[in-house]
């Protein structure tokens, strides 16, 4: 036997913060999976220009002839775009709700200046919103640079390999990537654990510890993997 919910409450629960967090979690995890694949692809820079450029064009032929040229890539782009859009939409709605619930002041809504940093929050958990905006700005810059070829520090090129070498031979380009990766690292550190908890996977104190360890591991692999190529190029280990 189950007892039914009234339609009004069902509809309201569908728009609840719990559901928005689930949407944000799924979007975030899809982006994180994409980042793992992207990071792995970048490491092909060490196999030389032919292999790297070949990999880039191979990505466009996945699924052929079933899919048209670039078909799989476009499917991936649509999935990613939907994930990013849903993630950001949910983030802003929840941000708005949290502000409304606390008179716009969040953790700073008390007169006292003591214990403003709370008791057990982490830096990562408190910078998700502004950190996310930093990541968004970086992603736009990044797409203009290495995907759309609009910004070309160090010289434009048709070859993705050369674009990467040209760009990352300049110290401030590498620095901007490092800063963005640190922001991404904090976001993933809290985000991966939070996503699983939002989806109901945090079932015990032990599981909470495991999920946090998983978040650290994912963060270290992704950030470490992304850092290796630009730093190697700057150092002149790859040319």
């Amino acid at each position: 036997m189950t007892v039914k919910t009234t339609a009004g409450r069902y509809g309201r629960a569908l728009r609840s913060s719990v559901v928005l967090h689930a949407v944000m979690a799924v979007g975030g995890l899809i982006m994180a999976l994409y980042l793992v694949a992207h990071m792995y692809g970048n490491l092909k820079i060490f196999s030389g220009q032919a292999a790297f450029d070949g990999y880039s064009s191979y990505l466009r032929t996945i699924g052929e002839p079933l899919l048209p040229y670039s078909g799989a890539l476009w499917i991936l782009r649509v999935v990613l775009l939907v994930s990013v859009g849903a993630h950001i939409y949910a983030a802003f709605v929840l941000w708005h709700r949290a502000r409304a619930a606390t008179g716009g002041k969040g953790g700073w809504r008390y007169q006292t200046t003591r214990n403003r940093r709370g008791v057990q929050r982490s830096y990562a958990s408190f910078t998700m919103r502004w950190g996310g905006i930093v990541i968004l700005l970086f992603v736009i810059y990044h797409l203009l640079h290495l995907t759309a070829n609009v910004i070309a520090p160090g010289g434009a090129s048709e070859s993705p390999y050369e674009r990467m070498i040209n760009g990352f031979s300049i110290w401030w380009v590498v620095l901007s990537y490092v800063i963005a990766l640190i922001a991404l690292g904090f976001h993933l550190r809290h985000g991966v654990w939070s996503a699983f908890a939002s989806l109901g996977a945090n079932t015990s104190v032990v599981r909470r510890r495991r999920l946090n360890q998983l978040a650290y591991a994912v963060t270290i692999v992704i950030i470490g993997g992304f850092l290796i190529p630009p730093v190697s190029i700057l150092m002149g280990w790859v040319r």
Binding site: L20, H21, A98, V119, Q120, R121
Partner: peptide, 11 residues
Amino acid sequence: GGCTQIGECTA
């Protein structure tokens, strides 16, 4: 508001 898994409540 919604929960962002910070955990100040449990403290």
